[in-house]
Design a protein around this nucleic acid. Sequence first.
DNA 1: GAAATCATGTAACGTTCGTTACAGAAGGGA
DNA 2: TCCCTTCTGTAACGAACGTTACATGATTTC
Lengths: 293, 293
Amino acid sequence: MDAKQQATKPTVAEQITQKADTLTASERKLAQALLGNYPMAGLETVATFAERCGVSAPTVLRFASKIGFDSYPDMQARLRGELEARLQSPLTRSSLPRSRNHSGHPMGELLHEMTEATISNIRTSLANINPAELQSAIELIGDCKGSVYLLGGRFTSALAVYAYEHLRTMRSHVRRVSGQSAKWAEDLLDIGKRDVLLVFDVRRYQADVIAFAEAASRQDAKIILFTDQWLSPIAQFARHVFPVRIETGTTWDSSAASMVMLETLLEGVGQHNPEQVRARIKHLEILRRAPQS
Amino acid sequence: MDAKQQATKPTVAEQITQKADTLTASERKLAQALLGNYPMAGLETVATFAERCGVSAPTVLRFASKIGFDSYPDMQARLRGELEARLQSPLTRSSLPRSRNHSGHPMGELLHEMTEATISNIRTSLANINPAELQSAIELIGDCKGSVYLLGGRFTSALAVYAYEHLRTMRSHVRRVSGQSAKWAEDLLDIGKRDVLLVFDVRRYQADVIAFAEAASRQDAKIILFTDQWLSPIAQFARHVFPVRIETGTTWDSSAASMVMLETLLEGVGQHNPEQVRARIKHLEILRRAPQS
DNA sequence: GAAATCATGTAACGTTCGTTACAGAAGGGA
DNA sequence: TCCCTTCTGTAACGAACGTTACATGATTTC
């Protein structure tokens, strides 16, 4: 399940080796330095990189140009991308021993990989959440006098649904923004400064979701955002941002870590006003027992 | 470059954690973003980092200053050093050197408890799944000539929504049984022996969900059940049962382990017919690019 | 050995960066 | 509600950046 996306995009290192025999003496020095401390050396400034190799700045630029980049920052961007990918790849090449009865069977592999990748995501994500930030978000939802709106994208709408069902048992005035995005404007009408928008948006950030959040922000709603580590643009308008890992090395991104983070938040909201929640649940059960008005 | 990189020097992440409670709202957003995508986010320019988080450049500088750096480039240098060190020793506990210090703050406790409880649930649940069982379920969905129906209860409907969105990208004839249960009978009309019902039902097993599954079973539909360790009554009619742990010691049950199990199943279905799925996604993207008939 | 070609450094350009001072906005307490 | 404190963005500055044109030096070719 690996290395199917590399065919279209060669790495910087590959580009260098490809053009290796056309490089001049100074350029070879640069190439060796970069490959020797890959890719960190290429992330320095032109001047620094040049000085370290004992060449001039223009030589560095000619080098970048020769191996196929429009500009030096262009090359850096690519190096950055590779580095980022490399940093989070250790999740998949799991170092732990095989668990139990899974050995041999191909589906056992899958189970094991998904388990470890997801656990890694959860650990990394929640370990980096600031407790105070969580506390503030909990209070924002728990003490909110207005309405709490839930919104998600294509895959994350499931999280919005989940949050909706839980919050509804804990407090009144919980609304889910659902259906076709063309109709969201109606929900937007009511949103104001006393309201909170809990929005889920991970990569392939959805334009309609972003637009809704931005509009809500302009109407002074408080926004809590669940997103991935690269941050949805909504982060700009959000009061609280919770970035979680979503990559498992498989075809699709995972919402498991987001789910755990969400459940943590929900549990926190419940604990924030325990007696109110308990009273509400009790009331709800009474109404359920005497239904069909 | 820096020979003074000592073991005694605290990492940037640690410095952030240390000053966490003195940070302002905007600064916390920066902290969250940096820790969420550590350390890459901090290697961007001030302007980029600021914009991504929706704050101004000076706020970023005040942040860097507050956590103990003389300048922004100063902080970047340190992040670079950490990164370089990590890259040079990929074998020695590469990706997770820091288990953040949540102690002290009550929400830190909560984060930690939820993390560990959930991970325990996932490990236990997936370790006990029979790979052959998973394989069969994958083939059942992947090779199903009829329709795949999704159904969930109050809280598990979120999982049904999630599965629906994924399966829809992988194959045709995927339907979600939604809305008021009184209207489910209409869906039931179409269900037959060529169809598969993927149903989610955890404790406080919902009567209407059970009834639907039983009816579908009588009409010879194949049932795949996601439930908890105590097994929903639907297990009696189900061809494949996946029991997962849902307890976390908190007020509410958790769907996190179910989510991981579901994602594993979905990944398996995707891998089962990779070329078909890829063709379908491609087709879908073409249709999306030429919308508004 | 002279001329041509290529590689490289110098110097200057406009741009973008990090940084600072200051004024306005937001939030909390009486 | 008002005031005071704290927080935050705007605007301006110098410095450093990537980039380019051009001159110098090295190397090759006849």
